[in-house]
Design a protein around this nucleic acid. Sequence first.
DNA 1: TTATAATTTGTAATCATTTCAACTCTATAA
DNA 2: TTATAGAGTTGAAATGATTACAAATTATAA
Lengths: 140, 140
Amino acid sequence: MINKKKTLLNEIKEILKSKGIKPSYQRIMVYNYIKNHINHPSVDTIFKAISGSIPTLSKTTIYNILNLFAKKGIVDTLTIDKNEVRYDFIKKAHAHFMCKICGEIYDIHLKSDVCLKDFVEGHKVEDTHVDFKGVCKECL
Amino acid sequence: MINKKKTLLNEIKEILKSKGIKPSYQRIMVYNYIKNHINHPSVDTIFKAISGSIPTLSKTTIYNILNLFAKKGIVDTLTIDKNEVRYDFIKKAHAHFMCKICGEIYDIHLKSDVCLKDFVEGHKVEDTHVDFKGVCKECL
DNA sequence: TTATAATTTGTAATCATTTCAACTCTATAA
DNA sequence: TTATAGAGTTGAAATGATTACAAATTATAA
């Protein structure tokens, strides 16, 4: 069990190094959290979740790390919620659905030509976001 | 000229009434502005633009009016820019492109099945946003 | 006209995010 | 081993968009 965890952390260490990121303990913990929590956490959510394991943790550190990860292409920055930025571990292109009632954000696996465009009307596309809002199936 | 302007304002007055909105002078001016400025203005932009004609205007009033217009389906609330909300006069469904360099937001006229969905994976869709980010043709 | 409700206004509060300077940690060189 | 430099972290303070709220103004109805 202990060995398993050690292996996991070493794996993350290697991934971060391969992306040109020095693998500090805080960065490894944030990476591990967002990799395993696909519910589009906010900075505050991540902070509360891992500050138990790192008593001295500062929220500024979470901001720093996520801004770094976004720049390095590890996380996607979702602006679907106007109150706070949400982060999404980048796997492959997918859309999002946000419930107006409960605020939950769901992944939507949709195949569409929209996500494949390199240029639209002369502008060079780097990121594509497809956001749906409405009432989720739980709240219906 | 004066008559023409008067006619325009009366037209807007009728539109607002038909949507169940009492047509105050401030509301008419905001409506007139967003109808004619398709560059996705922020609250601050709208405020600066029309405060010349209404010396006593408060920025809170712009917030109130835009929140009301959004609720009544007159404007679309764009969260593509994480720094501030942008507003878009609702005509017909279209996508947006935001330039990472200059911050400009362009309308993208794209025909896609994505915009026509009433339900996705069991969730009831009320709004659909397709947002592209990258480098615009001016900055390329 | 007077009373009542709706709207606007300005100030203050809220809250996510950024700035910044001090502190800590780690790695490397002497 | 110790000193030093650089990177990373921390917490307090600043920023800035948005909202809350209560007072002032305007419109509406009796």
